[in-house]
Structure formats: C-alpha cells, structure tokens
Design a binder for these strands. Structure first.
Length: 104
DNA sequence: CACTTGACGTGCC
DNA sequence: GGGCACGCCAAGT
C-alpha cells in the first residue's frame, strides 16, 4: 500500500489532530501508532510540507520525549500557541505529557 | 549519563 | 524512476 494510500496518510493525521481538545497535546509516535503505522517521521513531515496551519492544530503535537519539537513557521510560534491554550511549556520547550497528553 | 548512529515511512526534487 | 530529506524515536557506545 503505497500508491493507493498516497495522501490518505496525512489526511488521517489531520483528522486525528482535530480530535485533540484544546489544552491537550499528543506525540508523533502516538499518531502513527493510532494510524497503525510506524512512520512517525512521515507524520511530522507530512504536516511541515503542506500543513493546513489554519485548519489543523499542528502545534498540539509534540515529541514523545516531552519536547515541543519544531514548527513549520517557527518553533516559537508553536510554543506561544501552546501556552495560549493553557499548556504550560518549560523554558526549554518541554511539556508535561503526563498531564497534557491526550489519548485517542 | 550524554552523545552518536541506525532506522520505520512518506512526499517531493 | 531513483534518491534525498524530515517537526523523530530507540538503542548503542
């Protein structure tokens, strides 16, 4: 399944992202796992390439190690957005997944 | 304990 | 058509 899936993969990622409530975050690996795929890299990459930054809250997705990670328009933007939603982010750019991690 | 290397999977050049 | 790059993760050194 490579050609037939095509963008179906990233479309699923967006769909999952939209399920995340405000103030909650998830990890790339969780998304990939939720999709039944191990390509956690493809998840983040799919959004950075052509992310519907206005339609999809990509900023609610962080790394599994607790770091906020990066962002298409700049990691700073992502950090601000997270704090804006009520998610406390450490100065190092780390989020407490134990509290903000959203389970599908 | 901190850093380095290998690796799943996809999208675009 | 093939190869490369990436918003990563996990294991090894």
């Amino acid at each position: 399944m490579k050609h037939e899936s095509s963008r179906s993969f990233e479309q699923d990622c967006y769909k999952l992202l939209l399920k995340i409530p405000e103030g909650k975050v998830t990890t790339y690996k969780e998304i990939a796992h939720a999709l039944g795929e191990k390509g956690y890299r493809a998840v983040g990459r799919a959004m950075n390439r052509n992310p519907n930054l206005i339609d999809v809250p990509c900023h609610r997705v962080v790394k599994s190690n607790g770091e906020v990670g990066g962002y298409a328009t700049g990691s700073c933007r992502k950090l601000e957005l997270l704090r804006q939603e009520g998610v406390y982010v450490s100065e190092d750019g780390q989020v407490d997944l134990s509290k903000y991690r959203y389970v599908f």
